[in-house]
Nucleic acid binder design. Structure first.
Lengths: 199, 199
DNA sequence: CTATTATACTAATATAATTAGTTTTGTTCC
DNA sequence: GGAACAAAACTAATTATATTAGTATAATAG
């Protein structure tokens, strides 16, 4: 039994992510995390800058992983297929990482305007979404409005689902399919209007 | 300067609600709340059952106020006008009460299945939403799917907006108008399908 | 006016975050 | 292989908060 636990920043952050995904963000404490890692609480300060620093790392990890998932989901797709894949991937990410997903909501720009790494990771997600709506024929302000709609729908449904907010025993997949269809129809309508205005 | 601060449960909960709306739910502590009320921390235990009890009261207050707002918004309306009013009222509530709204997400049934007061307040909101989609011509499972869509859209947009999640300087009201129009179009489509299946 | 209750208090305990300073382990360089 | 260095863990101590127990005082009912 060596005195070295063999920790480093990634392993500490990964353990914290597992903790918040399992027991919720309210359950995160350095004490508890240290116990799970078989180490004394102050030892964690060798790897993360206290609780605020750990939360920053969780936010970065969450945004990066979400960006990876969304990017992978839409590769080679366009139009309605891309929108459907994007929404499904967002929902799947939140379902699989309910704790981590919580940290992806508040933009870095508000609390840490100098955190280029986080801001860049967030920008990548917006870029993916913009590309998806572009493949639908939307550009400019229309594209931004459309991205906001996509994000609202995906975030709203997935967050409520993860929080256990849909109590009635009726197929959630079907609810999400219908919501996705509604979004695709709405974006198609928008795209038609936009093309018409180009004359 | 009397020794009595004149507190009671409603005033303590109201002060806590103001605190979380102003500074966020993470800023809520009995210490801080007691300071704002000009009292020592343990005195709060005469009015609420510690921090967990206070959070329960905030959840109840939030769900009741949200129910009031939604009910008032849709009185005398039906169809698309009712849906629009419902979504607008939800968004306005979250904007005006970002902290309190946080406590309305997780259903009481999960943590406190015996808390009849909270569960009833939550049921009232569902009833209002069901009535709105019924006025649109939706019933049964279709109504439940529609209510989930409404809630996802409203919750998603309003939560992201309140969290400052929409960074790009483009009119948020216009984004919400388009999202609302999309929902109304989608529900209208659903209603048409449902009527057709009745033959 | 007295008895009762409610409200606020002080004192004490427990848990968690954080800082400071120390020890031990692993690595690098000669 | 041994010395020097850096990294990672530790112990000890401080601070902040929640909570409980027990006490005193103000408001109120009879």
């Amino acid at each position: 039994m060596s005195r070295r636990a063999g920790l480093d920043k990634p392993s500490v952050v990964a353990a914290a992510a597992a903790l918040v995904n399992r027991d919720g963000v309210a359950a995160l404490s350095l004490k508890r995390l240290a116990e799970e890692l078989g180490v004394q609480t102050p030892s964690l300060y060798n790897h993360v800058a206290g609780l605020p620093g750990l939360e920053r790392e969780l936010a970065l990890l969450g945004v990066q992983r979400l960006g990876d998932a969304l990017t992978a989901a839409v590769i080679g797709k366009s139009g309605a297929a891309a929108v459907t894949a994007l929404l499904d991937a967002y929902r799947a990410f939140v379902t699989a990482n309910p704790g981590l997903a919580t940290y992806t909501v508040r933009p870095a720009a508000l609390d840490a305007p100098d955190d280029a790494e986080r801001i860049q990771a967030e920008a990548r997600i917006v870029q993916v979404a913009v590309a998806v709506v572009a493949s639908f024929g939307l550009a400019g302000d229309d594209a931004i409005h459309a991205v906001r709609a996509l994000r609202s729908v995906a975030h709203g449904f997935a967050t409520l689902e993860a929080a256990g907010g849909f109590g009635i025993p009726l197929d959630l997949d079907e609810s999400f399919r219908r919501l996705t269809a509604m979004v695709n129809a709405g974006l198609g309508q928008q795209a038609k209007i936009q093309m018409g205005s180009g004359d």
